[in-house]
């Protein structure tokens, strides 16, 4: 991966919550269409890292460039980056007062200034892609967790993002529903989307990731391709983590 080909460039990123040093000197560059899985124990800063990329969290030091745009306090640039970066949350965060179709067409209408007809057409296509077109007129509260998460993925895709961020997308789901969401994500990965996924689903990581990053205490401890990562982890901390999540 050459440097000029990277879509996200993070260098010397530092973030504090009060006195707590949440991210320490993170350097990371992500290539176009690259799929990255970030794992690590809770509190290791993995969610904070990806939330910095679309500025749901504000970093104090270092720089983040997304598709050539530097993240600063400039509201216009932030909005621009956000509309190019889709995000899927652990708890779905669908808008409960809007139907599934309205959830998906909202941003294309208001941010992309599309016509309602056009936005709904595209929303229906994407709902078909995540295989729930028949639920379009229901409200989120009427769907199962797995269905809600797939709507959330469709909602993010409606903005035709160049990058998708997933913040533990399956952690709040029943085991049966994890599968349907992961399948949707694998299809998305196969279609060539740039993805950064925070997850503990190691099967998924092994299958789609180009690179797995292991974080602990706000630092990137180790990164490697899946095969080397699982077979020959370098640091003891990674070995311990892998033994804990794989051996049961």
């Amino acid at each position: 991966m050459t440097k000029s080909d990277s879509i996200i460039k993070i260098s010397k990123l530092n973030k504090w919550y009060g006195k707590f040093h949440a991210l320490k000197d993170i350097d990371l560059s992500v290539g176009r269409t690259e799929k990255i899985v970030i794992c690590g124990p809770s509190g290791s800063g993995k969610s904070t890292l990806i939330r910095c990329i679309n500025r749901l969290e504000v970093h104090q030091e270092g720089s983040i460039q997304v598709d050539g745009i530097e993240l600063t306090d400039d509201i216009k640039q932030i909005t621009e980056i956000r509309s190019d970066v889709g995000m899927v949350f652990q708890h779905f965060n669908l808008f409960p007062h809007l139907t599934v179709l309205e959830n998906c067409s909202l941003a294309p209408i208001w941010v992309r200034k599309k016509s309602k007809v056009e936005a709904e057409e595209m929303a229906m296509q994407l709902l078909e892609k995540v295989r729930i077109p028949d639920q379009a007129d229901k409200y989120p509260g009427q769907l199962s967790g797995g269905q809600q998460q797939r709507v959330a993925i469709a909602r993010a895709l409606c903005m035709q993002p160049r990058i998708m961020l997933f913040d533990e997308p399956t952690s709040a789901l029943d085991p049966e529903m994890i599968k349907e969401v992961l399948e949707t994500m694998i299809e998305l990965a196969d279609s060539g989307m740039t993805m950064i996924v925070v997850t503990h689903e190691m099967g998924f990581a092994n299958r789609v990731a180009d690179r797995i990053i292991f974080m602990d205490e706000g630092q990137i401890v180790e990164q490697n391709d899946p095969e080397s990562f699982f077979k020959n982890p370098e640091s003891d901390r990674t070995k311990l983590f892998l033994s804990q999540i794989l051996d049961h």
């Binding site: 749901l56 509201i75 995000m87 949350f89 965060n93 808008f95 941003a107």
Partner: peptide, 27 residues
């Protein structure tokens, strides 16, 4: 209105006035 709603609204690129009008006030 939960924090998640506001984060979701921001993540899809809504501006602050749009978020207030479309997400916060109706809820």
């Amino acid at each position: 209105v939960s924090k998640g709603q506001i984060e979701a609204a921001r993540s899809i690129g809504l501006t602050r006035p749009q978020m207030v009008k479309l997400i916060i006030i109706p809820q």
